[in-house]
Simulated scan of single mutants.
Amino acid sequence: MDGSSGQMIMASRPKPQPRLYEIRAVSKMTGVQPVTLRAWERRYGAVETRRTSTGGRRLYTQDDVQRLSLIKSLVDLGESVGTVAVLPTDELAARLEAVLGARAGEPRPDVLVRVAVFGPRLASMLHGDFSHRGIELVAVHSDQAACETLPPDLAVDTVVLEFTGVHEDTREQVLGCMQRARASRAVVMYDFGNLASVASLKAPPIAAVRGPAEPEDIARACLVLAAPGRTRPDPDLVPETTGEIPRRRYSRARLNRLRESTTQIGCECPHHLATLVGQLYAFEDYSAECENRNAEDARMHAYLHEVTARCRGELEEALSRLIHFEGLED
């Protein structure tokens, strides 16, 4: 209160600061490696990052993240990074929509599901080529109302929608959007909702994913909803194997004797360690003999066999040292 005039003096509130992200978080959100993010900024001026006062680490705004996601999507679709990195963000979005629209009518025999995306957050994160997962993005819009204006000849299998909150009538809204887009299925990304409303979105032909979600979460939901049991294994999940399986150092009879042994102070470590080694022997045999439905199964089982054998080798070495330490040699 100003004593001379009696007028109330209000302190001005500071403006809220925009949320800033470090480069590792941006890499995860956009799918662009940190070294590439640095190169895009240094060579092409793709974004102008802020820097921390200590250490000079890059800081990105939400607008930067959206812009980088658009550039990544266009590059994935065959555009030159040097060409698109200098474009304004609105031109990037328009260019991406044009490229996707031009490709929408092209037949893709490797595609399991054709997806149309509606929502601001979804539009900023779901770009690029998902064909390796059996998905083709045929339309990406930030406004859900755009489902009413899709070209009549555009084939859509699944619509992906976003809702901050879900309510009793959300399922009807989703079904209405499916009808307007001529889609047979829908995936909903939501943030909040009561149990009954959320449950109504988890019954076919609708699936629900709690936000914030990763692009891979949305892709997986689309594939599972479209063809349960037919989703393609991600080849990156199974590393190449070396074929090096260490020789086993103990017979099962020797392990059984170690399980029954006790030390002078009553330590049960030999018993437990011998049990673990025996269990790994059993799983090794199982993974080597497990039935393979296809080549991907065979790769996964070979990987499991090799990893288990390496772990078993480490435990065998520990058991050998323990046997010597406790004087349990035969």
Rank of each mutant, 00 (worst) to 15 (best):
M1I: 13
D2Q: 05
A11H: 14
P14M: 11
P14C: 00
Q17N: 03
Y21G: 01
E22V: 06
I23L: 15
I23S: 04
R24S: 10
T30D: 06
Q33D: 13
A39V: 09
E41V: 10
G45E: 10
A46D: 05
V47E: 05
E48M: 10
R50L: 13
T54G: 11
G55P: 09
Y60W: 11
Y60V: 12
Q62V: 15
D63F: 07
D64P: 03
Q66C: 07
L87P: 00
D90Q: 08
L96Y: 11
R103W: 04
G105Q: 03
E106W: 06
D110Y: 05
V111P: 03
V111L: 09
V117Q: 08
R121H: 13
L122V: 01
M125N: 03
M125L: 14
G128F: 00
F130C: 03
S131Y: 01
S131V: 04
V138K: 10
A146Q: 12
E148C: 08
L150R: 02
D153T: 12
L154T: 13
D157V: 12
T158N: 06
V160L: 07
V160I: 09
F163N: 03
V174Q: 01
Q179Y: 02
A181K: 02
A183M: 06
A186G: 05
V187Y: 02
Y190G: 00
Y190K: 01
G193E: 05
S197K: 02
A199K: 13
S200M: 09
L201R: 04
P204N: 08
I206C: 00
G211R: 03
E214P: 00
P215Q: 13
P233C: 10
D234Y: 06
L237S: 10
V238Q: 09
V238T: 14
E244Y: 09
R249I: 03
N256G: 08
S261W: 04
S261V: 11
T263Y: 04
C267K: 02
P270E: 08
P270I: 06
H271Q: 14
H272W: 12
A288N: 04
D297N: 12
R299K: 14
Y303Q: 07
L304Y: 10
E306R: 02
V307N: 06
C311N: 13
G313T: 02
A318H: 06
F325P: 00
